[in-house]
Amino acid sequence: ATELNLVFLANEDDQEYDAALVFKNFVEARTGGEVTVNIFVGAQLCGSANECFESMRAGVVNMYTATAGGASAIYPAVQGMDIPYALSSDRVAQLTLQDQEFTNFMRRQILDSSNNDIMLLAMTQTGGWRNFATRDKPIHTPDDVAGVRFRTIESEIQQRLVRSMGGSPTPIPWLEVYTALQTGVVDGTKNSISDIANMNFQEQLNYITLDGHAYMASMWFIDNATFRSLTPEQQQVVLDGGALMSTIQFGIQPRKELDAYAKWLEAGNEIIAPTEEAMEQFRSHAEPIREWYLERFGDAGQEFLEAFEAAVARSEEIVESDRASAMQ
């Protein structure tokens, strides 16, 4: 029998937990208990993307899920997924991240850049869209960002976006963000509504602007050695289970957001939907970042963006053709 230690750094309220439970049940049932899954919630076995990937290489952790930012530890060019406003809607995002050609491309890249240690199981999302959320100053247009200190993670793209709009990006460790918002070390944060509600930031924030500058893509990985050690039948089951996890996370997100938005409104906070005109302005800040990205990541970046943007185009086409067939 093979044991798979599955790790995710969120907690039992997060959608990863639902996905993991379904995966465990699916795999254990379909392999007749030959493959068992142990779920480790939070930082019991490893505490950061880098550490978890190293634990996968050591064979201690067998499955792990990371955002694009986390995955950039093994495949730096994947940060291109965080180029602002690259994805236009939930529907396009889901189709893109489940696009087969793009998934194949990503799987190959990640195997290559990790010396065949780590394999991509499936891509999905964790938490929906990153938006601008502020304490004192409502953000209606990019100009409003000027002079505002936004908490960001230590990722260059996130910081460039804020800086490009004239704001001041400030990296703060996740656990210190609440206090930093409360005391005014930062004036705002760029997070999904789910993360905001999970951490009770709505108590300190007043405005959220639904500009959707980044989609929080995430990926499930498995350590390649363990995967190869499975029988072909078991490998199939694990792959199908991975696809199932992806779908579950896409599906649960909108449901979880309902509660998060309810919490937001209960706190007496405002939701700002930018006008189409304002969105044009927001999106105009993406191009320089894209150029910077291409310069920074060279051929690898070029290759990634080609694959990614082709997948986005295919997805948009699917959405269009679906709409057209119904609305003709």
């Binding site: 490893c46 505490g47 190293e54 634990s55 064979g59």
Partner: peptide
């Protein structure tokens, strides 16, 4: 014994914190 890696890894990660 493969879990021994975990001990060394966590020793490092346990100190690697800004707070």
């Amino acid at each position: 014994t493969r879990f021994l890696n975990l001990l060394v890894q966590r020793l490092f990660a346990g100190m690697d914190s800004f707070p």
